[in-house]
């Protein structure tokens, strides 16, 4: 039992059949192992199958094919038992506008069979944790997007879950609100919580995930820690070159490093960015702008799929 991963999936498939149309395969045979205490991420663009996978893990969607075990149990037979130990933060906030901020937590606690007493205590602690204690008696609607998201995260923690599922926890938030959410999630991670999150932001994946899979078209296309994925699929540095004219300079840049021509710029992968820039100039080219930066998961994704993450 101790060795059993919290999430175990083999050949997991989710297919949606629609009236009068070809069935749509959202998840196309993926394998997963997530151990206790890990922060695990699904990175991919919209439509990659991340949310469908999360719903299957959350035991609110039946796998079409394959094997899935959550907390060592079968999601179909033991769905309610598994869900009692999960915390779920859905992509779209579904907080209850008829209730106050505090009641959103206490009411949710009762769905888990917690006593009023325990519910009240946890609500108070969690409101402190997500910095909403001063809004406790107010309604949900006037809260900002970031506050609502923090409340949804607090709600996901009310049953002290063994596994926390976060579907795009910071999508749609402004940078300041994102950082506040990240801080709380990082703290959770420090306390030993197991986090599983989806994101299409590479900085989010880099900050929060110990390990991640890159998904595209319902499949896992790469797996590893953020650093190891960058090491494996990109170089240490990337040079971004822009040219004023629309001439294709690919041939002239040959041999310096791997090239990725994008509509508005050229990416040049090199372990020594400054060295590569000198070589570009030595060849007599004069780009209108040059930027040397560390490579990111975005570059990994681009390399694996030929497309950018956020379009």
């Amino acid at each position: 039992m101790a060795d059993e991963p919290l999430i175990y999936a083999r050949g997991l498939v989710k297919r949606f059949s629609r009236k009068g149309a070809e069935p749509f395969t959202a998840v196309d045979g993926i394998d997963l192992d997530v151990a206790a205490g890990e922060a695990f991420g699904f990175l991919g663009p919209n439509g990659a199958g991340k949310s469908s996978t999360m719903r299957m893990i959350g035991c609110v969607s039946r796998p079409t094919e394959g094997e899935l075990r959550i907390l060592g149990m079968d999601p179909i037979r033991d769905g309610a038992r598994i869900r009692s130990r999960l915390g779920v933060c859905p992509q779209l906030d579904n907080l209850d506008p008829d209730l106050t901020v505090r009641e959103n937590l206490t009411t949710y606690a009762r769905y888990f069979g917690l006593s009023r007493e325990v519910g009240r205590r946890r609500a108070a602690e969690l409101l402190e944790f997500v910095q909403l204690a001063d809004r406790a008696e107010g309604k949900v609607d006037p809260l900002s997007g970031g506050m609502k998201r923090r409340l949804t995260i607090a709600r996901a923690l009310v049953n002290e879950p063994d596994l926390v599922l976060l579907d795009e926890p910071t999508t749609g938030l402004d940078p300041q609100a994102r950082h506040l959410v990240w801080e709380r999630l990082y703290q959770l991670k420090q306390r030993g919580a197991t986090l599983v999150l989806t994101t299409h932001y590479m900085d989010e994946a880099e900050q929060l995930c110990d390990r991640l899979v890159v998904m595209d078209g319902g499949r896992i296309v790469a797996e590893g820690s953020p650093r190891s994925l960058i090491g494996q699929y990109a170089t240490a540095e990337v040079v971004e070159l822009r040219f004023a004219d629309e001439v294709d300079y690919s041939a002239k840049l040959e041999g310096i490093g791997r090239l990725d021509p994008l509509p508005d710029r050229l990416l040049l992968y090199a372990d020594d960015g400054d060295g590569a820039v000198s070589e570009v100039h030595r060849r007599g080219l004069s780009p209108s702008s040059v930027l040397v930066r560390r490579s990111t998961l975005e570059d990994v994704f681009l390399h694996l799929t030929g497309r950018t993450l956020v379009d």
């Binding site: 769905g79 309610a80 949710y108």
Partner: peptide, 14 residues
């Protein structure tokens, strides 16, 4: 519209 039951069904409630 409120997606109340979606939130509820993520818990042990069936």
């Amino acid at each position: 519209y409120m997606k109340t039951f979606e939130a509820v069904l993520a818990t042990p409630v069936r």
